[in-house]
Design a protein around this nucleic acid. Sequence first.
DNA 1: CGCCTGACGAAAC
DNA 2: GGTTTCGCCAGGC
Length: 131
Amino acid sequence: MATRKKAAKPATEKLASLTPAGRKESFFELVFEVARQIPKGRVTSYGAIAACLGARSSSRMVGWAMNGADKVKPKIPAHRVVNRNGMLSGKHHFATPTRMKELLEKEGIKVKKDTVVNFRELFWDPSEELI
DNA sequence: CGCCTGACGAAAC
DNA sequence: GGTTTCGCCAGGC
């Protein structure tokens, strides 16, 4: 994602389109649904969700969808979604950069250097367990 | 209407 | 084996 960009993000923080006013069921909703099913104390990756939805290559969209996670009614546990590395790549999008880590630790998940410890063991695959 | 960005991922170098 | 690029899709400007 580097190089191709030239300056910091200008805006794109609106996302008001996802408001409950008249949003339609889209890829985003599917992501939200799956994200809500993530058991407490477990984590998953953007790619896993995307793959579960049949959009393996659209993992980016999953992260994008998470942008609206905060404004959806049932709060989406976006903190349980990390990248394939187990790294808290989205922590910067929370109220505070440490919020995500704190939420995870509160659920019993250890975070070391912005990375979920035992990520592989805590990994929750929607394709297998969600069915 | 076209270009850029973006919380990822896998391939290419 | 670390770093860089492309791909994918959707939304903002």
